[in-house]
C-alpha cells in the first residue's frame, strides 16, 4: 500500500521532468546518441558539400557524439 502511494505521487518515486522509466532509459539514451551524431554529422556533411570543403563532417560527428554524451549525462546521471 505504501509503495502504491509513492507511485501515485507523480510517476515512479524520484523521477524528474522528461525522464523515462528505467527500461526505456536505455532506448532513449541510444536514441540521443544516434540523434547527436546524425544531426551534427549531417550538418558537417552539408557544410562540406555546399562549400566544397573537407573535415567539417568529421568535426560534426565528434561534436555530435560529445554533445549526446553530455546530454545523456545531464538527463540520467546528474539529475
Amino acid at each position: 500500500m505504501e509503495q502504491e502511494k509513492s507511485r501515485d505521487a507523480g510517476g515512479a518515486p524520484g523521477r524528474k521532468t522528461g525522464e523515462a522509466p528505467p527500461p526505456a532509459e536505455a532506448w532513449t539514451a541510444l536514441s540521443h546518441l544516434l540523434s547527436g551524431i546524425l544531426l551534427f554529422g549531417g550538418i558537417g556533411w552539408a557544410v562540406d558539400a555546399l562549400f566544397h570543403l573537407r573535415g567539417f563532417v568529421v568535426a560534426g560527428l565528434l561534436i555530435g557524439a560529445a554533445a549526446s554524451m553530455y546530454l545523456i549525462y545531464l538527463r540520467y546521471v546528474k539529475s
Binding site: 544516434l34 546524425l38 553530455y70 538527463r75
Partner: peptide, 20 residues
C-alpha cells in the same frame, strides 16, 4: 535540458528534439 548555459542549450536542444 535543465540547468545548462544558453550556448550549451543551442547544441543540446536540437538533439533532444530530433531524438524525442
Amino acid at each position: 535540458p535543465p540547468d545548462v548555459p544558453w550556448w550549451v542549450r543551442i547544441i543540446l536542444t536540437p538533439i533532444e528534439f530530433l531524438s524525442n
